[in-house]
Amino acid sequence: SHLMVAEPEKLYAMPDPTVPDSYVKAMTTLCDLADRELVVIISWAKNIPGFSSLSLSDQMSILQSVWMEILILGVAYRSLAFDDEIVYAQDYIMDEEFSRTAGMLDLNGCILQLVRKYKSMKLEKEEFVILKALALANSDSVHIEDVEAVQKLQDVLHEALIDFESSKQPEEPRRAGKLLMTLPLLRQTANKVLHHFYNIKLEGKVPMHKLFLEMLEA
């Protein structure tokens, strides 16, 4: 219930209506949305029980390594009610054609694979919020100093998932494990998306806000 309350409000992409759709416009819109989402994710992380008691340095290392996973998991969850469309925001939904224009066909295909997995499992909101917190706690950053404290954070959230499943889905004893087994695909997808935006940064054609750049460079 704590995680349900900590869930942030929806953001809007607000693409510039005066600019025609193009690859650069799509990337500009997504980078701007991601920059604003990052601010929200950072304050969300502070509401995860145990996160704020970590050292500032460990909090930074964790967020720098998992922020894209948190972003993608949110996008995947928002896309659950749609057919083969990626919901970056309620006002920014990419179908196949738009994905092609935006140069995101392959990436959106990866995200769709994740969405299909969660769809087939009928992922619930409670499971989504625990999984998102677990993705945060599951950082494998080599820069973490107090590994034990991070492990404890992981254990508490893992426990929450097991508790939820044993009370809500007792007829599906392997459901918690099944959910955890989606985390590798989430990481793989997030890494691909990071690569994509890092290359865009190198090209230098898309304006990027400071926080987004800072996290991309980390």
Partner: peptide, 15 residues
């Protein structure tokens, strides 16, 4: 840490 000053500041903000 100087390179990551925005993240640092946002984590330190109390809000």
């Amino acid at each position: 840490k100087e390179k990551h000053k925005i993240l640092h500041r946002l984590l330190q903000d109390s809000t």
